[in-house]
Design a protein around this nucleic acid. Sequence first.
DNA 1: CAATTCTTGTAGTGATCGTTACACGTATGT
DNA 2: ACATACGTGTAACGATCACTACAAGAATTG
Lengths: 198, 198
Amino acid sequence: MSGKTGQGRKFNVEDALEAATLVFWNHGYEGASLAELTHAMGINPPSLYKAFGSKEDLFFSVVDHYNATHGNFMAIAFAEETSGLALMRRLLLEAADHYASASYPGGCLVISAAVTVTPANRHVADHLAKMRNDNIAAMAEALTHDLNARRIPQNTDTKAMAAFVGATLQGMSQQARDGATKEDLTRIANYAITAIGA
Amino acid sequence: MSGKTGQGRKFNVEDALEAATLVFWNHGYEGASLAELTHAMGINPPSLYKAFGSKEDLFFSVVDHYNATHGNFMAIAFAEETSGLALMRRLLLEAADHYASASYPGGCLVISAAVTVTPANRHVADHLAKMRNDNIAAMAEALTHDLNARRIPQNTDTKAMAAFVGATLQGMSQQARDGATKEDLTRIANYAITAIGA
DNA sequence: CAATTCTTGTAGTGATCGTTACACGTATGT
DNA sequence: ACATACGTGTAACGATCACTACAAGAATTG
């Protein structure tokens, strides 16, 4: 299928994806123009469209790339922690570290890149909203394991607790973008940790 | 100065402002086009520019209008509550009511209308960020009154507590946009209330 | 009525949006 | 070397962006 003839791609796809990630992370889906994207990626529009399909396709590739790199602390924590409460605690504290990084845009790309959009791009925002809600549902599931193992009070509303942790994370993301430091975010995280008894 | 001659304005400024508010609230600053704004306001571009100056000027007028109407529960709570802790509690519970309203866009306009923007509109996003930070600073000040009156533990970090409440409110706003119900938000609020002992 | 003044609707401005047609350059396959 | 295949850069596409020039309409003033 893929022939061996032709000029061959002149740029590294991973590098271009990382460059695009920083642009989308900074300015959001609609706030990132093709002109800025291609400039940051060091390529011209036809190369972008050849390699990634469209701006929207590129964005979702970027989201995957983000989740596999800058945002992978979440997936790692989910995989490594056996206790739901310990997972919540770890997510909150590590988010405080990552969201206020000095060398990258503030906050979480999934949380901030498509909050409000043009009606035509509503489905892009909905896609990220679903990822956020799925993440909270996964947190609730982890807490339900604690409940079934009688590690937390039997009257615990695990979905509500997960939603609370998710809301705290989302608020921490915005405050990181608003200038909060790691220490600021850690103090917020610790309040949440206290609230859930983790 | 303002002559009594001429055609006179044919539309009601408050009504137009309210219509524009709903559009900006739904789609954000950049996600709201002039075409959609003028259509919702029932006027044509020249009337909009004559009455409000520019899209940016209109947006800031909308923010003022929002704070004076849909979002005024905040200012009212600040004015009425004497205890900082009671103020935090009230803000959280009332936000749960307002952010998930069925008849209006979800969340808070100040929190969601300009999260990520084009570089050219960065200052608009910064303006809203400042409003959010100022609000948190005002919450911290109210808590400091509690501290000075020895109503809360003397080792309380009032700025951190205010930042935590602010983060929770911001997270609640996003979850409201993501589909959360009043009940969902109230459960989140109650976790935060527990955390700060209000 | 005529003159003045302000707002309105129509219709456009230049700029930028995401996207692509096309020809050139550069590689491989025979 | 020749033919073929693929990515590349240039330059443009129509659509939409925020915004406005302009003239007609509608009110008050003399």
